[in-house]
């Protein structure tokens, strides 16, 4: 079997692979520091709407769920697994304890290179310098 236009095809493939894998090899060996989201200050620390392990992995689905319940069904209160009642509101409930978006949310979001569009609309407390 003969490969027609062999050199061109092989060079093309190499260039394609180089571009395609660029994000992988360009950052090799330059691992960004693992984020340390700021813990909630002791003074305001109460219980979160769910435990830390759950929140770490699934807070986005919880927020989407809250969003649909509040906007579409008008249900605004959330009784957590531990029996505490919360107002389902990103700006008004989450940010009561997690007062800094920069030190809390952005830490991991930046590390993972995701930019959720929550903040296009929802306001966050002014950051203290």
């Amino acid at each position: 079997m003969k490969l027609y236009n062999g050199p061109q095809i092989i060079v093309g493939l190499v260039i394609f692979l180089a571009i395609f894998t660029y994000p992988l090899w360009s950052g090799a060996g330059k691992a960004a520091p693992v984020p340390k989201p700021q813990p909630v200050p002791k003074s305001v620390a109460t219980q979160c709407v769910a435990d830390t392990a759950y929140m770490r992995t699934s807070h986005m689905t919880l927020l989407n769920y809250w969003r649909d319940e509040v906007v579409r069904d008008g249900d605004r209160l959330y009784v957590s697994a531990s029996g505490k009642t919360f107002n389902m509101s990103l700006s008004n409930t989450c940010f009561e304890c997690h007062t800094s978006k920069v030190k809390f949310c952005d830490q991991c979001h930046n590390y993972l290179a995701i930019s959720p569009f929550c903040w296009d609309c929802h306001l966050t407390p002014k950051e203290k310098k």
Binding site: S58, L62, D75, Y78, M88
Partner: peptide, 12 residues
């Protein structure tokens, strides 16, 4: 990624 944890519930 479950949408809520355990036996939580929502209400008005």
């Amino acid at each position: 990624f479950p949408k809520s944890q355990g036996n939580s519930e929502v209400m008005p």
